[in-house]
Amino acid sequence: MTTTIETQPAETVPEDGKPVVELKATGKSYGNIRALHGVSLSVHPGKVTCVLGDNGAGKSTLIKIISGLHQHTEGGLLVDGRPVHFSTPREALDAGIATVYQDLAVVPLMPVWRNFFLGSEMTKGPWPLRRLDIETMKKTADEELRNMGIVLDDLEQPIGTLSGGQRQCVAIARAVYFGARVLILDEPTAALGVKQSGVVLKYIAMARDRGLGVIFITHNPHHAYMVGDHFSVLRLGTLELSASRDEVSLEELTNHMAGGAELAALKHELAQVSGVDTEELPEEGDVTTPAATAPDGSA
């Protein structure tokens, strides 16, 4: 007898446009250090929410709160409209929240199909003689990868032999198969070239089209703007910008990411330093912040 793993369809989402995951004035403190403060964010099914910020902006803390690694110390975290406090990442997974970290949590020397089911292997046979159902796992992995548009000639090849973009795509397909409703992607294009980054962005769009809510963590505004529906820019643990795609241009998003407001304030002083071209820097009145979006998605 073959034991199969039941998955939840991506269509299992809240009705009437309500967000799957919601942060309301959420914050996290480590002793006297406040890593995150007053952050509100909504993740809707079939939408890509891009969270941008420089190193130390609070992106990692945000991921850890939503994925169950850390608990928030202020504000609230809601899933399907209900307040939650995840104690472990397994609780977040059970709620349909899957996180793909930069290291991808794969075993490089294991085959692709083995990594696809790592920790959730299919088995067959009576106890105590149960054994891995290798044939079914290979077939299922191949079908799921093809459903995401990923065609690999040999699923027996070690996953470490795939390109960085291909490994990211396998991790995305794995999360989709195991019932993720919200997919958190931690800097998936950070270490990739232009072509491989494009491949990953394509699969992010495909995951969105399958009804998943995607949280795309990145420091690259150009990558974010290609697939994003809503943009949140973090700076020093607080939310500097929260705007939908039709409220902000790529240039404005880039300015916020580059610290445009600070550069504008320093433009006069920088102009007095030899060798610094200030012509392209924004004026203080040029860097505007679109109306912040409320946690429920209204303006």
Rank of each mutant, 00 (worst) to 15 (best):
N147W: 01
K139F: 00
A271D: 14
L192G: 05
K202W: 02
L132T: 14
E280L: 13
V100N: 04
G56S: 07
L52K: 09
G149N: 04
L212S: 02
Y225P: 02
Q272M: 13
H256S: 08
D133A: 13
P290M: 04
A190N: 06
Q272N: 14
T254Q: 11
E6W: 00
L266S: 13
H223L: 03
Y101W: 13
I150W: 00
G198F: 03
P45A: 15
T12Q: 11
P83T: 10
G119H: 12
Q196G: 01
V39T: 07
V276N: 08
T61W: 08
T189M: 04
E262C: 01
K202G: 05
S274K: 12
V51F: 12
Q71D: 11
I33F: 15
R146I: 00
I5M: 07
I184N: 06
V79D: 11
I217C: 05
D154H: 06
R146K: 10
M148P: 00
L69E: 14
A175K: 01
G259R: 10
T2A: 07
P89Y: 08
T7W: 06
E283F: 04
L132F: 10
G259N: 08
A292F: 10
H222Y: 09
E156P: 02
G96M: 08
I215M: 14
V106M: 15
A171I: 02
P19R: 05
I150S: 00
V214T: 06
D153E: 15
L41G: 04
G160I: 03
A35M: 12
M226E: 15
L23F: 15
E269F: 09
T136Q: 06
I63F: 08
E6S: 10
